Simulated scan of single mutants.
Amino acid sequence: MEHRQMGKDGPQIPALGLGAWPLGGGMGRVDENTAVDTIHAAIDSGITLIDTAQAYKDSEAFLGRALANGYRDRCFLATKASFDFSSQGIRAGMENSLRDLKVDYVDLYQLHRWDSGTPIGAQMETMVQLQAEGKTRYIGVSNYTGAQLEQAYQVAPFHSDQPGYNLFDRHIEADVLPACREHGIGVLAHSPLAKGLLTGKYTAETVFPSDDERSWLPSFQGESFRHDLDVAGRLEALARDKGLTLVQFAIAWLLRDPAITCVLVGAKSPAQVADYLPAVGVTFSQSELDAIDAAMGLA
């Protein structure tokens, strides 16, 4: 597994990390034994960064079981404060996560989203205090705009940002990535497969179960869904020409940029974990990148 440095002075982390939202049940229920097997398969294969959050349903409890018997020592464990961003809420979130994860500390603690109801100064100061107390080795943020990153960084420098980024959603290229490059902030990209749009698994007739968030997400409904599936079909043809699955192709496209420290892949089975590995180490020529943009109607 390729490793990259998280930020200008952070640790080496794997280029692929396991995002635990699907394991927790956010995209349909996952059996606990299957979740544990999937986590073990990821760590055994070199995908040793595991990212979860308070909001990821059953994921922290599943991880608490999966990280026993030496697996905790083999992984870089990240979680997030998701709900209450007051100082007391962030602290309570940390304690709840440590309890559910059955660990004494995490490697990375993140603010899950921007909260305008609590001064960012108080939030970041609490994060720094938790770091000083040994509850987390590093601190970061998630889903911030470039301007929000700047505000937070002025209070307390942090090591990572976790934005959504994929071939369909490139909004971070305008302001978030430039801010991260300027300050030397590591980027952990979530939703690299656009929640399944970039897998080639679905058709316009696909019906998602009610406990799967895609049953109500606008991008999986009607004309928007059909359009994106058509684009994904064109991308899949480019992937085949390169000897890759669409999944591998989409992840490799993200990893082509050295500003991306880690791509967080979701998985609901060990087989899905194995499918991600060939994406690491792939390079693209400029003509291939131009073909991707043309397939998406951006050229």
Results as ranks from 00 to 15, higher is better:
273 V>I: 08
247 V>K: 10
266 G>S: 07
242 K>W: 04
182 E>C: 01
36 V>C: 15
45 S>E: 10
48 T>S: 14
220 F>M: 06
89 G>M: 05
280 V>S: 11
208 F>L: 15
225 F>Q: 08
215 S>I: 03
41 A>Q: 07
14 P>C: 10
225 F>C: 12
250 A>R: 02
91 R>D: 13
252 A>R: 01
121 G>V: 14
95 E>V: 03
56 Y>F: 13
166 N>V: 11
234 R>H: 02
170 R>F: 13
256 R>P: 02
228 D>S: 08
217 L>A: 14
59 S>E: 02
213 E>F: 15
276 Y>D: 06
66 A>E: 06
77 L>D: 14
298 L>W: 13
79 T>E: 12
226 R>I: 02
60 E>R: 01
16 L>F: 04
75 C>F: 14
47 I>G: 01
169 D>C: 06
179 A>C: 10
100 D>I: 00
279 A>C: 06
202 Y>I: 03
59 S>D: 12
115 D>L: 03
103 V>A: 10
127 M>V: 11
284 F>K: 05
244 L>A: 13
104 D>S: 15
97 S>K: 01
141 V>D: 06
200 G>V: 07
120 I>Y: 05
209 P>W: 11
275 D>C: 03
55 A>K: 01
200 G>Y: 05
174 A>S: 13
45 S>K: 08
222 G>A: 09
5 Q>A: 02
60 E>L: 01
74 R>C: 13
253 W>N: 01
108 L>I: 02
144 Y>A: 09
182 E>K: 08
256 R>A: 14
201 K>N: 07
270 P>E: 07
236 E>H: 04
299 A>R: 09
150 E>K: 07
19 G>R: 01
134 G>D: 07
254 L>A: 10
138 Y>R: 13
199 T>I: 02
76 F>H: 12
44 D>A: 06
105 Y>G: 00
47 I>Y: 15
52 T>V: 01
276 Y>G: 02
70 G>H: 12
271 A>L: 12
125 E>R: 05
181 R>M: 06
137 R>Y: 14
168 F>T: 06
258 P>G: 10
203 T>A: 05
127 M>Q: 08
137 R>V: 08
60 E>G: 00
14 P>M: 10
44 D>P: 00
161 D>Y: 06
68 A>R: 15
147 A>Y: 04
166 N>F: 12
236 E>N: 11
80 K>F: 14
215 S>D: 12
191 S>G: 11
204 A>Q: 04
43 I>V: 15
45 S>N: 03
71 Y>K: 08
232 A>L: 09
116 S>E: 13
156 A>N: 12
93 G>Q: 02
127 M>W: 09
278 P>M: 10
19 G>K: 01
95 E>D: 15
20 A>T: 09
175 D>Y: 07
66 A>P: 00
194 A>M: 15
41 A>N: 03
154 Q>N: 04
199 T>A: 13
145 T>I: 05
216 W>R: 11
100 D>A: 06
70 G>L: 02
285 S>K: 08
234 R>V: 03
282 V>Q: 15
39 I>P: 00
101 L>Q: 00
167 L>R: 08
100 D>N: 14
40 H>N: 04
77 L>P: 00
196 G>S: 05
205 E>A: 14
77 L>R: 08
203 T>H: 12
54 Q>R: 05
277 L>R: 07
78 A>P: 00
15 A>G: 06
134 G>P: 00
